[in-house]
Amino acid sequence: MDLVTDGQWWFCLKHMRVEPEMGCPNKDRMGPYATEQEAAGALERADARNKAWEEADEEEDQ
């Protein structure tokens, strides 16, 4: 597999790892991201965003 990409990195939810553009089907991945490091932090960013949205929803409900 050629790991040289044009800024297309993905986080595979099936294998729980970062992949270059040529990897698993997009339905199993998050991305694309510009760098391998950004893709590696995909789950942490999604978790932080979900928590922020939940907190915002709770504030709206009050």
Rank of each mutant, 00 (worst) to 15 (best):
D61F: 14
Q8A: 12
H15M: 11
P32A: 04
M16G: 03
V18F: 03
P25M: 10
E54C: 08
E21A: 08
G41W: 07
E55H: 09
D6C: 13
Q37F: 07
A56Y: 11
R17I: 08
M1E: 10
C12H: 05
V18D: 00
M16R: 14
D57P: 05
A42W: 02
D47I: 06
D47F: 14
A52Y: 11
L43G: 04
D2T: 05
L13P: 07
E21P: 06
A39D: 03
E59H: 01
C24I: 03
A52M: 14
H15G: 10
W9S: 00
K27I: 14
W9E: 02
E54L: 14
A46C: 08
A42D: 02
F11L: 00
A48Y: 09
Q37T: 04
E54M: 14
Q62G: 10
V4Q: 10
A46E: 09
G41L: 07
E44F: 10
A56C: 05
Y33P: 00
V18H: 00
V4S: 11
G7L: 09
E36M: 09
E60D: 14
A34N: 12
W9H: 01
E44V: 05
D2V: 02
G23E: 02
N26M: 13
D61I: 10
V4R: 09
D61R: 13
P20S: 01
R49G: 04
R29E: 06
A56E: 12
N26G: 12
P20M: 02
E55C: 00
L3F: 14
E21Y: 09
G31Q: 03
A48V: 06
Y33F: 15
R17Q: 14
E36V: 03
K27Q: 15
R29I: 00
E44M: 10
Q62I: 07
P20G: 02
D28W: 12
V4H: 11
N26Q: 15
Q37Y: 09
D28L: 11
E44N: 08
N26F: 14
E44W: 08
H15C: 15
Q37R: 07
T35K: 05
M16E: 13
E38G: 00
A40N: 05
D61W: 15
E58F: 13
E60W: 13
R29A: 04
E21W: 09
A39E: 02
K27L: 13
M16I: 06
A40H: 06
G23H: 01
K27Y: 15
W10H: 02
P20Q: 00
A42H: 02
V18M: 01
W53F: 15
L43C: 10
N26D: 15
A42C: 04
E38L: 06
Q62T: 06
D2W: 04
M1N: 09
N50E: 15
N50Q: 15
Y33Q: 00
P25Y: 10
L3V: 09
T5K: 01
E19A: 01
A46P: 07
D28I: 01
P20W: 02
A39V: 01
M1C: 10
N26A: 13
R17A: 11
L43E: 06
Q62W: 13
E19L: 01
A56Q: 12
D61E: 15
C12E: 00
F11D: 01
T35G: 04
E44T: 07
P32Q: 06
E55I: 05
D28Y: 10
E58D: 13
R17V: 06
W53A: 12
E55S: 02
K51I: 06
